[in-house]
Amino acid sequence: MDSLVVLVLCLSCLLLLSLWRQSSGRGKLPPGPTPLPVIGNILQIGIKDISKSLTNLSKVYGPVFTLYFGLKPIVVLHGYEAVKEALIDLGEEFSGRGIFPLAERANRGFGIVFSNGKKWKEIRRFSLMTLRNFGMGKRSIEDRVQEEARCLVEELRKTKASPCDPTFILGCAPCNVICSIIFHKRFDYKDQQFLNLMEKLNENIKILSSPWIQICNNFSPIIDYFPGTHNKLLKNVAFMKSYILEKVKEHQESMDMNNPQDFIDCFLMKMEKEKHNQPSEFTIESLENTAVDLFGAGTETTSTTLRYALLLLLKHPEVTAKVQEEIERVIGRNRSPCMQDRSHMPYTDAVVHEVQRYIDLLPTSLPHAVTCDIKFRNYLIPKGTTILISLTSVLHDNKEFPNPEMFDPHHFLDEGGNFKKSKYFMPFSAGKRICVGEALAGMELFLFLTSILQNFNLKSLVDPKNLDTTPVVNGFASVPPFYQLCFIPV
């Protein structure tokens, strides 16, 4: 009986604490739906499609509103004006990374994606500088992407125009580009180590996009005490870190300090320079996690976009025909596509942009946080508050993009057929937390897609009208449904 009384008292205290925290903070924060004790607004949000729920709530509470995930307040920004004001106009104040408990377990605050403060700034600055020195957006990395595009075309030829699921092959190409940047090595598509790495990356994007992960991140005790797919994700990350550590040891034994070959060499050189400046942010643990982040951000996002792009091109054969006509006119058949071609191919450029806009790969991006107490639109948001960005509300804005739910390359073309930029184009987020590999991803999408369409016609196994382009999961990332196609050599 005594234990029951204690339990009831504990629960009562928890409920009172929950109510007090919510009521004391709500006077400062933007308005929002009334949260339930302990669980907050979790029942009012469709976990399978958070973005749709945010759109519905914005119609009631406006472009800036507050939700509670458990006891934790989260300020939501919906629509271009609110997102721009926060991420661009007040970029420094909104540059923090929001709480992501599962990532905390995986990387302990290291790396480039989930770190904060001085650690994040130094690692991000170093990573950007190193990638630029190796030619991100310049010639040397373009050579690597072109080489991988040629290998991709050869792998597709091996399908002999038979029906195939493109998931694996389209994942190999961007993964190999990242391998060449980090390890100075590309792998054969049949290499077992490479296959294991690909498998872990593919599993992780599916797990991260599941409703279960949303629950884990908002009720963090689940991570330590409950079984579930989150444990598989943590094991996959541990596998990748151990693999990278092996490569780091190989580099330490063979590195030429006067001739760095890749990202690992550059990081080890930085560690050597910083060894007298303790404590340094440049450690082996930081290198492991930064490399894992580059793999995660640079492989599955690009391969998922490529997979979605081919599905949309199957669905819209008239678009595919126009792209192939432009390829034939500008590039021809006797040389590989290059980035200089893009400025002469406005329709193809528009298609690449429209694919990214339409699929809305990361509907709410990753959570941000404010780095200080900030007054925002007459609300006071306390330091450390998590900020949720609705990228969907920007990419699918119906004023900027008429009929935003329709796939239409003319969203990025003017009346004369010239490519038209849009400030609403934010597939990689915006501001200080914009994806480090934005330029690389854009290069890969253009070169891989043009190389495929230069060499193959795409054949659907069903009537294009019957192809479903609805994402199968739409949590962290929008993942396309399973499909097969035939690559018919031109």
Rank of each mutant, 00 (worst) to 15 (best):
V490G: 05
D49G: 11
M339H: 06
S220V: 09
S280G: 12
R357P: 00
A439M: 09
P346Y: 02
Y308L: 02
L268R: 05
L128T: 13
F267Q: 03
N56V: 13
N56C: 12
R144H: 13
R21I: 08
N196R: 13
I327D: 01
N107S: 13
N202M: 07
N258D: 15
V6I: 13
R144G: 05
T290Y: 09
K118N: 07
V6L: 15
C435E: 14
R157I: 06
Y358D: 01
M426Q: 06
L131V: 11
V355P: 01
I182P: 00
P63E: 09
P409E: 04
P409R: 01
I181D: 00
T290S: 10
K423R: 10
S286R: 07
F295K: 00
F407M: 01
F239P: 02
C164T: 15
S343D: 14
V319T: 07
F419E: 04
N289F: 06
H276M: 10
G62Y: 00
M198H: 07
N202I: 10
I488A: 08
Y483R: 01
L128Y: 10
L234V: 14
K423C: 12
Q324G: 05
C435D: 07
E328G: 12
G70Q: 02
I327M: 05
A309E: 01
F401W: 13
T301I: 13
L36F: 15
C216Y: 12
G332R: 04
Q340R: 13
H344M: 08
I215C: 14
K160V: 07
I215F: 14
L449K: 01
N107P: 11
D165Q: 01
K235P: 02
T348S: 05
E122F: 09
L312Y: 01
D341H: 07
L314D: 01
L313H: 00
P404F: 05
M198S: 04
D49A: 06
L440S: 01
F476G: 11
E354D: 02
V319M: 12
V472M: 12
W20V: 08
E285D: 14
C435G: 04
V75R: 00
P402H: 14
R132N: 11
F263C: 14
F407Q: 00
I222K: 04
I389K: 01
I215R: 03
P480C: 15
F194C: 03
C372H: 15
M443D: 02
L29C: 04
L11V: 12
E246R: 09
S95T: 06
D191W: 00
L362C: 08
E199S: 09
K235F: 06
K273W: 06
L29H: 04
S51D: 09
Q356C: 12
E328Q: 13
D49P: 10
E142R: 02
E93I: 06
N277G: 13
L449Y: 02
C164D: 01
G437V: 12
N378Y: 03
D468P: 07
K383S: 09
C338L: 08
S286N: 10
H368D: 03
L485V: 14
T450R: 00
G70L: 04
L16H: 00
H411R: 11
L4P: 02
N474A: 10
A441T: 09
S58I: 02
M257V: 14
C10H: 02
D256T: 09
I434T: 12
I99N: 15
I213Y: 13
V292I: 12
